[in-house]
Amino acid sequence: MVTKNTFTAWLVIAKNNIQSQLLTRSSSTLFIVGKLLQFVFSLIIINSIFKNTGTIKDYAQEEATIFVLVYFIMDSITQFFFRAIYTFRPVLLKGDYDLDLLKPLPSYFRPLLSRPDFFDLPPLIIQIIALFFFLNRYQILITPTNFFAFVLIAMNGVLLAFSVFLLIASFSILTTEVDNLIWTYRSLSNAARLPVDIYPRFFQFILTGIVPVAIIITLPAKALLGLLNPQVLGLSLLITIFFVYSSVFLWRKSLKHYSSASS
């Protein structure tokens, strides 16, 4: 679905965004400081808890730390790519989305891909470095297979996040609520900073099947640590396929609704 002109258009937009974000130096510094504080404090919390408890359910401190790191990495990646969803509603309300639909671009370009946020990149780089630092410090050996699986499953996670955001974009066309949906997603993804199997069953179900943050965030970490079992993996892939299809289906529906509702 992504063609050459979509890609070059994205590059042009990305270049523009870097330029204008570099202009606002003070606010970008504050934003990046905030992101890093959240990141470091999260690690401190995990560390403090383990000092007092020794384990969280079956997980050791080393594993939990890796989970938190992967959570931040996946969060930064999805925020970087799909930031545009936060500003889609005003575009819809003003009717400017009409003009986007007249262009030979995929219709999801504007609501999802049109605002890559480069404030998320410096934190992302630091988080990736931190991941390697901790892997090394804990002497966790990553086999090539595990690493390869991690990359693949992380990409699967980005695809799944894409369809979740596409669902949110559809809802924002069909209803007018969208902010609440995004924040609910963000809150729930918070829960996935630790492996979801520490939670009660029904909560696990919500985090896997309804708002699949577990597959987006926890699963890549499991793959990296080699904790993945084939059944979970298979189920997760099925859920991803389901989400991709249903989001595309609902998106088409909502586009049709959009074109029949406006005058």
């Binding site: 002109n5 042009v12 937009i13 262009k103």
Partner: peptide, 9 residues
């Protein structure tokens, strides 16, 4: 305009 240049190739 440059963006449209890319979009319309």
């Amino acid at each position: 305009f440059l963006l449209n240049k890319a979009i319309y190739e």
